[in-house]
């Protein structure tokens, strides 16, 4: 097994929200204690519903935000804000919304060259252009697209441009923050196939953030299921999809639409709402909505445990 390129332990990110004049400032625990390892050529998927801290995790790993606590080691370097600048070339990100992620005033060529202009000052203009043109080809765009503006492209093409820009610096890790959820289904598969192809060719490590389980099933090697800022289950894809052990994972999987009308409809409907991240319950965060919860669950949060297929639950399934 190759050495991990990204190692995170106990990563946490809290936000302080100032209340009114009289109320105390509250703390939003967007991400509280997540561990993972990411290896070259592999894809780690993070799934969960809105507000579970997936995007915060992406922003912490991409060094846009500083973690409140915990360790992040990327490519053997312990990350602190002073190391951000030198590590930019290692980790790059592709955003969800391809309409907002490209500067509308720059041509595609300029957009692609910008990372090089900033980070490779000694590179000649001709080399930069050659590299940008090469990258345009690599992501499946045509050479004449080089001189166009972003508004002349469709969503799928824009996402290809965003991927090309992320790859300009030869990163080792690509954070994909819901890269296909803004695209329509036929385009989604094209972009996913492109990502698979690029991963094989460049031996990239992907941190794939998604809420779409069918995409994850197609794409990931390992999966972490998150609930309210914590990992509740962590397993290789095959094991998780075959037999989820956390009740929340099971409920999540049961809601994935299947293309088989004969199949049993055993969708699990969760009652209630996601608790507020400002006021996380003392015990298991999922206990309020869980059909297996007991008094013990509400007392203390369960730890993520297990060998290969880890689960944070006192009453694991299966």
């Amino acid at each position: 097994m190759t050495a991990p390129i990204v190692q995170a332990s106990e990563l946490a990110r809290f936000y302080t929200v100032k209340g009114g004049l009289l109320s105390k400032p509250a703390t939003v625990k967007a991400l509280s204690g997540v561990d993972f390892e990411l290896r070259p050529g592999k894809t780690l998927a993070i799934v969960g519903e809105s507000g579970c801290g997936k995007s915060t995790l992406a922003r912490v790993v991409t060094m846009i935000e500083e973690p409140t606590s915990g360790n992040l080691v990327i490519d053997g370097v312990d990350i602190t804000p002073s190391k951000w600048a030198q590590m930019r070339e290692t980790v790059q990100i592709v955003f969800q919304d391809p309409y907002g992620s490209l500067n509308p005033r720059q041509r595609i060529g300029q957009i692609l060259q910008e990372p090089l202009i900033i980070n490779r000052r000694d590179m000649s203009a001709a080399d930069r252009e050659a590299r940008a043109r090469e990258m345009i080809e690599l992501v499946g765009l045509r050479p004449e697209h080089y001189d166009r503006y972003p508004h002349m492209f469709s969503g799928g093409q824009r996402q290809r441009i965003a991927i090309a820009r992320a790859l300009m610096l030869n990163p080792k890790v690509l954070v994909l923050d819901e890269p296909v959820s803004a695209l329509d289904v036929s385009i989604q598969s094209q972009i996913l196939n492109l990502l698979v192809e690029l991963q094989e060719r460049l031996n990239l490590a992907y941190l794939f953030i998604s809420h779409d389980l069918s995409v994850v099933k197609h794409f990931a090697d390992d999966v972490i299921v998150m609930y309210l800022g914590r990992a509740v289950e962590k397993a290789p894809k095959e094991k998780l999809f075959a037999a989820p052990r956390h009740p929340y994972s099971k409920a999540l999987l049961s809601t994935t639409p299947r293309a088989d009308p004969e199949a049993q409809k055993d969708r699990i409907k969760l009652e209630g709402e996601l608790p507020s991240p400002m006021n996380i319950p003392k015990g298991c965060a999922f206990a309020q909505r869980c059909w297996l919860a007991t008094e013990k669950c509400r007392a203390a949060p369960p730890e993520l445990s297990g060998a290969d297929h880890k689960v944070a639950c006192l009453h694991p399934l299966g």
Binding site: Q92, F95, N103, P104, E114, P115, I118, A166
Partner: peptide, 14 residues
């Protein structure tokens, strides 16, 4: 707020 500004930051823009 827009993503293209964040991605410029990720690219290392000062």
């Amino acid at each position: 707020q827009k993503d293209y500004v964040t991605s410029a930051r990720v690219a290392g823009a000062g």
